[in-house]
Amino acid sequence: MAQHVVRVRELVRQFGTRKVLDNLDLDVRRGEFVALLGRSGSGKSTLLRVLAGLDREVSGDVRVDGTVSVAFQQPRLLPWRRVWRNVSLGLHGVDGRAVADRALAEVRLSEHAEAWPITLSGGEAQRVSLARALVREPDLLLLDEPFGALDALTRLAMHRLVEDLWQAHRPGVLLVTHDIDEALQLADRVLVLDEGRIRAEHLPPPRPRRHADLAELRDRVLADLGVENHEAA
């Protein structure tokens, strides 16, 4: 088994004449949690779609070694299938109900297994989407701002949940976000995407992390993103 689940070299993705991804290199090791930061429109989703195999109009070398699951910013559940069916559909050769029940227990939604998706809150729907991604036991889990639409408290609860799930299943994770604290809290490695390339890489301190440990690193990442820090200046 290769050491890397993602290996990308000189990836170029153009829309018209504009190179949204411009000679991008990226590695993700097996079981590694990588966060990808970038301004809105910097090409984060574009990169993720390439890795998910949803966009093949690219040049360069893209290798994804293993199975891939995605949780999108919108949960994208089938409104006409009950929650547990949403989790298990697309799995073959297993007892879908049992697998779904186990995954729903992990995201603490057991009592909603029979519910219709329309009855779920935003955070609950996003947890179903996570459960659905995880039951596929992916080698690579792609998360595209999955908490962007959630309120702050729910988002914090989701961070803890994602970290627990990652510890339990150990997929390689590429978490796309524009929330610095989220990235620093969760990732082994924080990458900054700018002008089509990975412009910077930061390594947060070992876990468990306390908020205070991250303050100084936070300023450096903010600087990479072009945000002035007035207190430091």
Binding site: A52, G90, H92, R132
Partner: peptide
Amino acid sequence: LLEAAGVLGYTRWERLVH
């Protein structure tokens, strides 16, 4: 939804029916 179905490994038949 179709895109999600593709990523989640639905067969053609599952995509049609579900």
